[in-house]
């Protein structure tokens, strides 16, 4: 399993647009990705679940990626996060 953390820099936190981008990306991955924050975990292919975590600017999320190609998939997600959030 690949795990990394990321601090959200976007002013409104994980809002609909970047959440939608994450979901679209996660759906195309060969491994399974989830996002943890505030003691809750959300499957990254689920838009409502991700938005429901209520991640705000300055919060640090933990992303877990597990499955075949997890290294490349984690890198994809990390880049997507840094470009959009």
């Amino acid at each position: 399993m690949q795990t990394f953390t990321y601090e959200i820099k976007d002013e409104i936190g994980i809002h609909a647009r970047p959440a939608g981008l994450l979901v679209k990306a996660a759906k195309g991955l060969s491994s399974k990705a989830s996002m943890e924050f505030g003691g809750k975990s959300a499957d990254m292919t689920k838009l409502f679940a991700i938005m429901g975590l209520g991640v705000k600017q300055g919060d640090t999320i933990t992303v877990n990626v597990e499955g075949p190609g997890e290294e490349a998939d984690a890198a994809t997600l990390e880049r997507l996060l840094s470009e959009n959030l």
Binding site: A16, R17, G20, K24, T45, K46, L47, F48
Partner: peptide
């Protein structure tokens, strides 16, 4: 316009 793509993702959301 992007909001309608987001709506599409919401519509397809597994939990929903």
């Amino acid at each position: 316009a992007e909001i309608f793509q987001i709506h599409q993702l919401m519509l397809e959301d597994d939990d929903y």
